[in-house]
Amino acid sequence: MLIFSSSDKGGTGRSVTSCNLAYRLSLLGQDVAYLDFDFGSPTAGAIFEIPTLERGTRNGGLHSYIRGRATEPVRADIRTTTERQVLKERPPGSGKLTLFPGDVGGAEFSLTNEHIKKAAELFQTVEREFDVCIVDLSAGRSSALDMSLQAISPKNRPKKAEAVRWLLFHRWTTQHVIAASGLLLEENGILSCALAAGFARREFLRLVRTIRTAVPDASAFGKKTTAEQDAWLSRSDDILKTLAKSRGLGLDMLAGTTPLEPMLLWREQVIMDVDVKRRLADKATTQAFEELANKLIDDEAWEGFER
């Protein structure tokens, strides 16, 4: 299965959520590959706490591969290369967790057919080994995004190939909802790119789901909230829901919600069950990740919230 992670703005928690989903999926017994397509600033190495890959690799990462400068991209087994002790352990029944890093100093490029061919070949190669491949795209419109859409379009991907899911991450604020909707539906957005790549509108939108990240609840105001604060929050939430619905990002598109996690405000990292045990992280966070991970690999649950 191929999962693409996209977002309009930076700071949505797209990469960190995707890394956490990768980790959770591997706990669920899936062999997981994480492809860092954020060519301008690869970050997955830092999130998985792999010191040698903090800003990507110098030895032929995904960017080099796509540009035809490497016959196969460098990869790293996350559990054996991470600095984080608890992440090194592979629980029984869990699957592989592998990072395909980007390149140090990679950058935007102008897209050619050759790049699209490479991307399609890359997905093919990775899918031969892994159950789930998460492709983390940079924020906003990018060549990597366009290239990915072309590579998974019906023109290039066999009909019977494994499932594709397209995730759109946005934070739960007015600006973010408007921006995410714009990226998906406005001109030169994801949908119009997909249509140009050969998708039918309905067929592509069936793949897309949104993830609302860092959604606060009343506790964000502090330990004690006033009645006014509660009312305001509830009203704001309603306004946002109406806005999201009117912008085509309603409940029918929603894959899940992740709560505001203070740990992630300081440091983008994988939140593990031990962090909850040590009371560093909120249980709601790991629960949200796990629920999402389960939904992603369960076709019925996924299709279940199709409109």
């Binding site: 016959t71 070949e121 093919q124 190669t125 031969r128 892994f130 066999p158 019977k160 190939a161």
Partner: peptide, 21 residues
């Protein structure tokens, strides 16, 4: 690995192995 990848492009290949390797 590159030589192996040349074989992915030939028309006789259906790209649907049932085993992850």
């Amino acid at each position: 690995a590159y030589v192996m990848s040349l074989l992915d492009r030939v028309p006789q290949i259906d790209r649907q192995p049932r085993l992850k390797t």
